[in-house]
Write a protein that binds this DNA or RNA. Structure first.
Length: 458
RNA sequence: GCGGCGUUAGCCUAGUGGUUAAGGCUCCAGAUUGUGGAUCUGGCGACACGAGUUCGAGUCUCGUACGCCGCCCCA
């Protein structure tokens, strides 16, 4: 009787999907580390003001789409709706703005939104993200865009397009909004109700309108690129030029504007292009941009910043749609069976050395017939059965049976680990500390010079 | 948050006012505890929840929850 259900828009990650998420996190986090972005964790709950300040109090996120948390009746806390504001809060709270700049961070966390769920828009969703503080140069923008392109290529996502645009520096934004407002104000009577509202709330969003007539009006609007400052133009030109040189495919989309107020200059998004997703409008698998005014808005010094966030759920389903195998539900490779009854501890003792050696081992504790136990082992996906039969147990032996090849041999207890190793691989054991990288080539093989200490001359 | 459409067992499906709600898959247990995915036999298990209409509701009406789609918005 399904009396209890997961809350609306939230779902369980069953082992297969959880394994896929783990695999995605491992790939993304390893790349982040390679780019010099260590992971930073922030609480799932934050003071609502953190986000209200950052994203702009008028945006919809602020007004109605955050999930509030009640703590003994006191309000003011919300479930984290996005990463950038939270990471920025941590950056300032811990004085990281007084550490050598730039500071780079990676995160991989669940986020929450309050709207009704739709295709790939859950109330709890996972995002990975990068933040870089204290680098105003276009190279920092490029770094993150290149990261994303390389990441998506690594995991095998091909059905997407990268769009880039510039929305101008902080100082230029009021002027830009003013110019657009003046333009659209002339057509106010012709705009549909939604766009009339956008005219007052967020003019930039009129460019996203689906109404054909409004689109026509929007085509004649002043171009963002003409409205931004000369410095903005130089910055954007450097980004675009860099993408060309790096061989990253992109489109300049004059209409691209992101939802949060904190974006300045470069904005970018990766949109899915598979029809299964475009039918639901534009779904972004990653997106981000520069936020040169955010740190100051949050109470810190004038600090440039740039960030990107990607949807893990979106990426996972997009890969599935493309037929990319992500990860399988992990199964125990080895099953321990026994014909003896009440020998649970013996079965555990049998499994122990195998587990310590790195094999994944599950145990059948039942007293069912060997036939049943073998059937169960196969159904659970085991590749090898270690069978404790009566005569073998008496002689200190077990049977190691390869369930796929249907071959087996009697093995001394001391040799079980070696014998099992002939049929299935060990799982990598994680370590608490990582050691130094081994040198992968002979010294001098790449034509490098000898090591010299300070003061030595070649 | 607004609107439309849905919800029968773990999964898929039948059942449009009248016995005890049917079937397939899965799962569990057996087919005399030494060798497996098959087969056979048996078993567990559902009308999302709550009201209402009716002699009688899985079936009609309303509300709630959840899902899908659209809108708003997009992280």
């Amino acid at each position: 009787m399904p009396t209890y259900q997961a809350p609306r828009g939230m779902r369980d990650l069953l082992p297969a999907e959880a394994a896929a998420f783990d695999a995605l996190q491992a790939v993304i986090q390893a790349r982040a580390l390679r780019y010099g972005y260590p992971r930073l964790g922030t609480p799932i709950v934050e003071d609502a003001q953190v986000f209200l300040r950052a994203v702009g109090e008028t945006s919809d996120v602020a007004t109605k789409e955050m999930l509030e948390v009640s703590l003994h009746g006191a309000g003011g806390l919300v479930l984290r709706p996005e990463g950038t504001a939270a990471v920025t809060r941590a950056y300032l709270e811990h004085g990281l703005h007084r550490s050598p700049q730039p500071q780079r961070f990676f995160y991989f966390e669940p986020m929450f939104r309050g709207q009704r769920p739709q295709l790939l828009r859950y109330r709890q969703f996972w995002q990975w993200g990068l933040e870089c503080y204290g680098a105003a140069e276009p190279g920092a923008d490029l770094e993150q865009i290149e990261f994303t392109a390389a990441l998506l290529a690594e995991v095998g996502l091909t059905e997407y397009t990268l769009k880039v645009n510039t929305v101008g520096e902080t100082a230029a934004q009021p002027k830009i909004r003013q110019a657009l407002k003046e333009y659209f104000e002339r057509y106010r009577a012709e705009l549909d109700d939604d766009c009339k509202a956008r005219l007052d709330s967020n003019v930039l969003r009129i460019f996203d309108c689906k109404n054909p007539n409004d689109r026509k009006i929007a085509q004649g609007a002043p171009k963002l690129r003409d409205l931004v400052s000369d410095a903005d133009k130089t910055h954007f030109a450097a980004v675009v030029d860099g993408l060309d040189r790096l061989g990253v495919a992109y489109e300049v989309d004059e209409r691209l504007a992101r939802g949060f107020d904190y974006y300045t200059r470069t904005v970018f998004e990766c949109h899915l292009t598979n029809p299964a997703f475009t039918k639901a409008g534009e779904i972004a698998v990653a997106g981000g941009g520069r936020y040169d005014g955010l740190v100051r808005t949050m109470g810190g010094p004038d600090t440039a910043g740039v960030g990107i966030a990607g949807g893990v759920d979106v990426l996972y389903y997009a890969l599935k749609e493309q037929g990319v195998a992500v990860a399988e539900e992990p199964r125990a490779d080895v099953y321990v069976l026994s014909a003896q009854s009440d020998d649970g501890a013996d079965r555990l003792q049998l499994a122990g050395p195998l587990r310590e050696a790195g094999f994944s081992v599950a145990i059948d504790y039942s007293t069912r017939s060997l036939e049943r136990q073998l059937e169960s082992a196969v159904k659970h996906g085991a590749k090898v059965a270690v069978i404790r039969g009566t005569p073998e147990a008496r002689g200190g032996n077990v049977i190691v049976r390869d369930l796929a090849k249907k071959v087996q041999r009697v093995t001394r207890l001391a040799a079980v680990v070696v014998e099992v190793g002939r049929h299935v691989p060990k799982r990598p054991k994680p370590r608490l500390e990582s050691g130094p990288n081994p040198d992968e080539h002979e010294p001098g093989a790449a034509g490098e010079g000898p090591y010299l200490g300070d003061g030595e001359k070649e």
